[in-house]
Design a binder for these strands. Structure first.
Lengths: 239, 239
DNA sequence: AGGCTAACTTGACTAAAATCAAGGTTACAC
DNA sequence: GTGTAACCTTGATTTTAGTCAAGTTAGCCT
């Protein structure tokens, strides 16, 4: 059951049986509703987390309450693992943004496995390096893409996981949240999405977006990006 | 000589003697002048690099030449190492921006040492995690700090490496480059720096900045940050 | 179905940063 | 020193995004 789930996590592909046993021994699966805070940045904890289903927002806040979204993760991703390197202190807060099933896992076996299994350590490093590249791109996009282009790019990344031809995308969470994920205000998002419709012929109805093909969108958004479409660094999971 | 230098790199503190021997065997030290391109993103290479002195810009460009600065590194930092995880492809371009001494190192021993020395693998992971946090903060700052606050924050990070009291900061490279590092135009930088003078009483003369104490600057910049001053994640080297 | 709330959109306005176009200033080569 | 080029600043203007306020829509509860 739980152990099986863990064995199928890509990041753990080279891990030994005892690792899974230890991990499963301290594992708990929970279902959470939207709004649930799992931990706050600065909290100390002995667990890391695996998203079995749903969506989780990682964020930080200033004293006056302004929020910066670090990332939003779904099925297949782990988070809270970097606390290993910071004396168990989480570097961000985590909030459930769509009803989710989260597996809570003890951090000690993870640390052990890194120490004892060099293949796994290498996988972890690879995963970190990949994430690092994603963040580089994020920073890049904030400086060279405008609001509409950023939305277009966001849509294209959702689309990748599906097939080509007549394309349909369903926003996985609130538009307000997409806006904050992209570092803009909800009003700006609303207007920029409308502009994107005019420029690229995508059709928006509620949280569903359709288009005949994605070429126009690619031309519009990827023009202001240093990578070529399709972006290679897309991961449906923490691999 | 060279081997000694390598032994003193913090990241390599747990590495064995044979690692240093292999590394040194393939190592070459070079002096480069401003403007020298070390490699371009997409290039394939078998080396990574250590900054012995000077400053190196890592960046990416779109087809139309728009440039996004990934980071700017100085003494003590390594770069190009993440190519290990991408079949030897560098994910960014590297350019010397101030006359520098760079040690070119073979990537094979690095890969081996990760595989054979779990302590080192853990150090690498810690270094990656740290960098990741820095990037999180970078993204955060781009969305919640204005141009002047970003400059203030940049200055405070330079200052950390020195002492307190009457404070003097020397910009380590061109203002234009600082601007691009902070994701703004040179004109915006120039105006924002002037605004910062008015708001915080710092004094700017050429590339030298002085202030009686840094409290006003901290109040001004760190108000729009989720971390508290002094930021804990400052590293003078890749540790 | 009605009513409530939160999500979303729209409009008018403001603020911030980019762009365009001149000028200065500085550093360095000869 | 003189000249030149790159760096930097300043002003005027435009573009972009943020803010504030007022709707509208959509989902959900009873």
């Amino acid at each position: 059951m739980l152990k099986n789930t863990l064995c199928n996590i890509g990041l753990f592909k080279d891990c030994g049986d005892s690792f899974f046993t230890n991990l499963a021994a301290g594992a708990k699966s929970h279902k959470y509703n939207k709004g649930k805070i799992l931990f706050l940045h600065g909290d100390k904890g002995d667990n890391f987390f695996y998203v079995q289903s749903g969506w989780v927002k990682l964020f930080r806040e200033t004293l006056d309450g302004t929020q910066a979204v670090v990332d939003i993760f779904t099925t297949g991703h782990i988070f809270g693992d970097t606390a290993i390197f910071e004396d168990g202190i989480y570097p961000y807060s985590a909030e459930i943004v769509e009803s989710s099933e989260i597996i809570t896992l003890p951090i000690a076996p993870l640390k052990e496995e890194i120490a004892n299994n060099s293949k796994f350590a290498f996988s972890m490093l690879g995963s970190m390096a990949k994430y690092r590249r994603q963040q580089d791109r994020e920073i890049e996009h904030r400086s060279i893409q405008n609001a509409s282009q950023r939305i277009g790019c966001f849509l294209l990344r959702l689309l990748q996981q599906n097939e080509d031809g007549q394309v349909q995308i369903h926003l996985p969470y609130d538009k307000m949240l997409v806006a904050s994920r992209l570092g803009m205000q909800p009003e700006t998002f609303s207007r920029a999405l409308k502009k994107l419709q005019n420029e690229t012929g995508i059709r928006v109805k509620g949280s569903t977006i359709t288009m005949d093909d994605c070429n126009q969108l690619v031309r519009y958004s990827c023009a202001a990006c240093t990578s070529e479409f399709p972006c290679k660094d897309i991961s449906s999971a923490a691999e």
